[in-house]
Structures are given as structure tokens and as C-alpha cells.
Nucleic acid binder design. Sequence first.
RNA 1: CGGGGCAUAGCGCAGCCUGGUAGCGCGGGAGUUUUGGGUACUCCAGGUCGCAGGUUCAAAUCCUGCUGCCCCGACCA
Length: 480
Amino acid sequence: MLWTEAAGPLSPQGSACVLRRHPLSLPGHPVSTTESRAFFMRLSRYFLPILRETPKEAEIISHRLMLRAGMIRQEAAGIYAFLPLGHRVLQKVCNVVREEQNRSGAIEMIMPTVQSADLWRESGRYDDYGKEMLRIKDRHDRDMLYGPTNEEMITEIFRAYVRSYKDLPLNLYHIQWKFRDEVRPRFGVMRSREFLMKDAYTFDIDKEASRHAYNKMFVAYLRTFARLGLKAIPMRAESGPIGGDMSHEFIILASTGESEVFCHKDYLDFEVPDANVDFDDVAGLQKIVDKWTSLYAATSEKHDAGEFAKIAADRQVSARGIEVGHIFYFGTKYSEPMKAVVTAADGTEKPVHMGSYGIGPSRLVAATIEASHDDAGIKWPEAIAPFDVVILNLKQGDGATGEASEKLYRELTAKGCDVLYDDRDERPGSKFATADLIGIPHQILVGPKGLAEGKIELKRRSDGTRELVTPEEAVARLAQ
RNA sequence: CGGGGCAUAGCGCAGCCUGGUAGCGCGGGAGUUUUGGGUACUCCAGGUCGCAGGUUCAAAUCCUGCUGCCCCGACCA
């Protein structure tokens, strides 16, 4: 029933990772005996704790909307539970990220959240990292920590197995929760202490090879953000506490963004590489990266007013931005102290050149809302919407609307759509408000008036347009 | 970590100054009504007033300490 479909993201490409469990496998949850209701994602049976009023602690719009839409629940400062709706979005973001990482040749794995301090003593960062690192002791009084990042661990794994340049290049990534004990967490999951992070780590024989690895991730990021419906602009960045010299931040423009950014307007119209881009084409990738780094783009920290002024006035963009990704090359910073070396073609041992590449899915969920909402609520891009379609039965209890709604549900589901059915015993106004708030891209309004003429109403959340069509047309339209 | 603020029902708040039976709106439950943009009405349930001390005949209210959370700044994916 519900769980079968709620278990995970349902986009066709992403379904491989969905655990399709039989409901019987869930202990403590008796299987419903109302067979006719099986396999319907009914809002009346879902867990969607909508808040009508805005909790006072929420300052920025994405935080407010995520709380109101029942997506998250704060458990401590900067620590959040993702409720079913939020979880669906998070999973969909992860799937897009995952697909693009895989496309570029990166290989997924997963590393633990808790790490041994010894690993960090090897790189020298145990003492450098400061209070952002959550340090803990286990029962044997050993120093442990909740990972704020995984360079040391991946380097340890690499050096344990890889001996030859023939095994390079290598790109390993994982999507895992991290913890940074920020002094002042804020803005909901935009800047939480615990956050989900995709981290990729590349290993190459030299800097040139590493540049290609860097370019692969650069292009993968362009594609990832575009698929999420975001305009992300790569900007030259400081390499941060991890060190290095080749580094870009991917910034999306949003009026409520946390920092000020400046860039050339042409970036907004740059073409994003399509799915057929050849990631092994070294020169081709370099060309794409060169283009995407050819114009001025800087965050306020690196902003050069003089350079910016050289751009034609009507091409200048000065806006606020949110960092959603960060990639950097850091050479042998970890491979040297941690002795991650391979034998090169000439027989000598060389420390590998590394890079790391982060995207924060949990932050992306919030960032997307910042970039896409209105007074009524969230407007999800189709790629990460928790559901593709919501069917609103405007007269619950009316046999005709119920039948029409369920028929629509079955047909859309059969066509691969992710459908939510609002079968609650609520007034139409309440259903409209809920649907708008949670931002499902397409609403199907099934009411007695329209049904009398054999029509239902199709409403698009993005621009509010609505049209009367037959149920058959609606299905054809939504199934693409 | 510097500065400011808050903590009373699930959520939003009043009550505190001037100590004396803990309130309102929303939400929840039962019902009547209504049925295409959060319908109206009736009834009901729900709070050791963040925690611990103290003052007092009496503390949500006054005093002390603690904890949690939020905002501004510095910092950060």
C-alpha cells in the first residue's frame, strides 16, 4: 500500500535504487484489508503535518515553507528530521545527483559517519579543524569524531588497495550525512549542523590528469543543477580549509541568497552540455569548462569592482546567491602525509593528485525553494517534486468525483506518474491551499461541476494556468 | 564567540509591570451546516506556565542559577 510507493523516489531512471518492500515486511504495521484502497497514495492516509501558521523561529522563506509543508522537523539546533514529503524531495535530489555522477564515470560507495581520530592525526587536521568538528569518545575512551568530511578516510581506503598508475584515474563518491558544529546554525536545512552531502574524490597520476577529472566534475555539476531546474554559475573560489588552487563554487541566484555575487549576464543563457557529452574527450571537456569560466563571476569575497565595471552595464548582474556546490583540486595535500602513492610508468613511486567535489542535497532542497516559490507556497521543479501530480477530489463522498479521481489515479500511475490523491474530507478551499503549499507541479481538480460536462480542470502550479479538459486528455498530457 | 531576545495547550499569542481559580485564535475530537479558494455555529478534550532553588499565607507573575531555542555580527557546504 502506501509504503510500497512511498519507499523512495519513483522517477524512472532512479527506480533502481528503490527498495520495493512488501508491506508485510514492515513489523508493527498491519496490512489493510480494504483491498480496493491498496496502492493509492491517499493524503488521508499519508503523514503530512501541514502547519497553517508560520512557526516563529523560521526566518527565511524556504525554512518557513518547509516547516509549513510538513517536510522537516527540527530536533535540535541545526539538526532536522526529514518527514515523508521532505524525504521524497531529498531522495529525488539525490537521484539526479547520483545519475549525473555515474554518467561522468564516478563510482558510488558509502563511508561511515563516525571516524577514528587517528586517521585525522595522520593528515594533521585533527588539531587544525577546530570546534566545528564534533569529537566523541567511545566506551574504550578512544578518540572518535563525527565526520565533517572524508578526505582522510577515502585516502586511507585508496592507499590500502591501489598500487599502480594503471588503476588510475579513479573517482569514488558517496552521499552521506555529515556534521559540522557550526557556531550558529540557521536558515533551517540551508545551514544546518547535520547535512547530507555528496562528496566525490578523484585520484590521478599528475596534475594534468587531475585537471581532466576536475573538468568531468565541473560538467557533471552543470548538468546536475540544470536538471534540478536551477541556474548555477561557477565562480572562482577560495579553496577553504582543505587547501588547493583549482577551485569553483557553484552559485544559484536567489533574492534571499546569503551572500552577494557578481557576474556577467551571459552566463544565464549559456548552454548546458547535453546527456551525450563525452566525458573521456579531454579537449572537448576543457572547451566547455573554458567557456563556462570565460566571463566574470565572483562572490563578494573575491569581487573585483574594477573588473566588474568593464562589463557593459546592461550585462552586469549583481545579485544574491546561494552556494550549492564546491569543487576543488588539492594535489598531494593528503596523499603525501598519508602515503597514498602509486608506481608510475617509469617505476618510481608518486603521491597521487586528488580533488574533492561536494554537493549538498539537503541544502539544495532549501535552495530550490528560495529560487522557486510564491505567496501560496512552494513551486517544485518537476525533477524533484515529491509527486508529479496531485488529484483533488473537490467533493469527497460524491460517488462520481471519487470514481473519476481513482480512475485518473490508476491511469496516471500506470503511465509512470507519481500521484498523490487528496481524498481528505476537506473543503475545496483547504485542498487548494494545501496543494499550492506543497507545490506539486500539476493539480487535477475533480469537481461535480466540471464532471457534469465530462471535464476536469488541469492546473499548473508554476504559472497558475488552468484549463478544462477531459480526463483522457489530462492523462495524455501529464504522461507526456 | 561578542551583542540582543524568547521559553505559557500541537501552532501563533495574551496574561507577568501591580503575586490571589491559566486565557484567546488556529489546529484536534463529536455534531449540525456548508460544498470550486482555508464555511458558520454548538459542544468537548488538551497546560506539573522550560528546569532547579529562593522570597511569600499564596508565584506563570518577584529574585537567583541552569538549560533550550531564535535574531544581529564574526564564521561556514
